[in-house]
């Protein structure tokens, strides 16, 4: 039996412990708040709040210098939807994404497979093949702009011996989007090779051995073993590079400025033209385009997760 005094003592100790734990939890909460504060501050000021403000500005009309001044409801969206150009711009955006993401993935796989060759010095080649990742949109576009130059460009120089007339790669509406896409594919390849090559190296050797024992060879090994096991990397690259592609701006600005005849005007470039390029900027209309872009990114990403992620083979 405990005496009354002992019992009181135990109770006091217990409640002190509870208080201690509460104090510790409170201190932990305070520490967490302080540690998260810097990041949350940056996100709030430069991402979350602006996203809301974009939505608000998209419902406003502008004064003469483009400043949003008065509420006009869905006017900007109606204006946007009534423009026949919008369909063209969205089509350009989707085509550009298609022309960049898929070729960069396919060529990336081929290069990564090549880097699986077991020869001395393969690490040296792996390092070199990542080169495009060191380029920016500006540096890559500067070099490719010279390649595509109709008069002195290397590309037409290659065609010259075959008596093919110089092509105006960036000045013809039929080739401009492809030329900008080719630049983007090259730019994306460095990253893709790095990721896919790491993905291939992560596949354990015994999986191949087991498949070979089952009689898988060459292409069937690739189709039934290598590619399924590579799907996590492929899916990751698909999502990331699609988002990136939908946001492309620099290569268009440097190579074609959206032309010729709007053939390379994507959503982002249309946003730029409406907000910043002319004297009479229209931030309301441009913000409506920004919301369309945001929705497009969310929808495309959601579709990719909904349709494709279940086919990804996570080990």
């Amino acid at each position: 039996m405990l005496t009354q005094v002992e019992l009181t003592g135990i109770r006091a100790a217990a409640s002190a412990q509870v208080r201690d734990r509460h104090r510790l939890a409170a201190r932990e909460l305070l520490t967490a708040a302080l540690f998260l504060l810097p990041s949350l501050l940056v996100f709030t000021v430069f991402l979350f709040w602006p996203l809301l403000r974009s939505a608000v500005i998209s419902t406003y009309g502008n004064d003469i210098i483009g400043r949003p001044t008065r509420f006009t409801g869905s006017h900007n969206y109606q204006l946007l939807l009534s423009q026949p150009e919008l369909h063209e711009v969205i089509l350009n955006t989707l085509l550009f994404t298609l022309y960049t993401v898929l070729p960069a993935l396919v060529i990336g796989i081929a290069l990564a497979l090549l880097l699986q060759l077991r020869v001395a010095g393969i690490g040296f080649f792996r390092t070199l093949l990542a080169t495009p990742f060191g380029f920016s949109v500006a540096t890559a576009s500067a070099v490719f702009g010279i390649f595509f130059n109709p008069g002195v460009g290397v590309l037409n120089g290659f065609l010259y011996p075959f008596h093919i007339h110089p092509v105006g790669w960036l000045t013809s509406p039929t080739t401009a989007l492809l030329a900008v896409a080719a630049t983007t594919v090259w730019l994306q390849l460095g990253y893709n090779v790095l990721v896919l090559s790491a993905g291939l190296q992560a596949i354990p050797e015994d999986v191949y051995e087991a498949a070979r024992l089952d009689g898988a060879r060459g292409l069937s090994l690739l189709r039934h073993v290598t590619l399924p096991l590579l799907t996590p990397s492929l899916f990751f690259l698909l999502v990331v590079s699609t988002i990136q592609s939908l946001q492309s701006f620099g290569q268009i600005d440097i190579l074609t400025k959206g032309g010729p005849a709007r053939s390379t005007t994507t959503l982002v470039y249309d946003l730029y033209l409406n907000a910043f390029a002319f004297g009479n900027s229209n931030f309301g209309l441009a913000s409506a385009i920004a919301m369309v872009l945001f929705l497009l990114v969310v929808i495309v990403t959601a579709i990719q997760f909904g349709v494709l992620e279940r086919r990804v083979f996570y080990r």
């Binding site: 602006p50 500005i57 946003l271 919301m291 945001f294």
Partner: peptide, 11 residues
């Protein structure tokens, strides 16, 4: 997931 271009005008 928020494209920087979608918030570039307010910024």
């Amino acid at each position: 997931m928020i494209p920087w271009e979608a918030v570039i005008i307010p910024n």
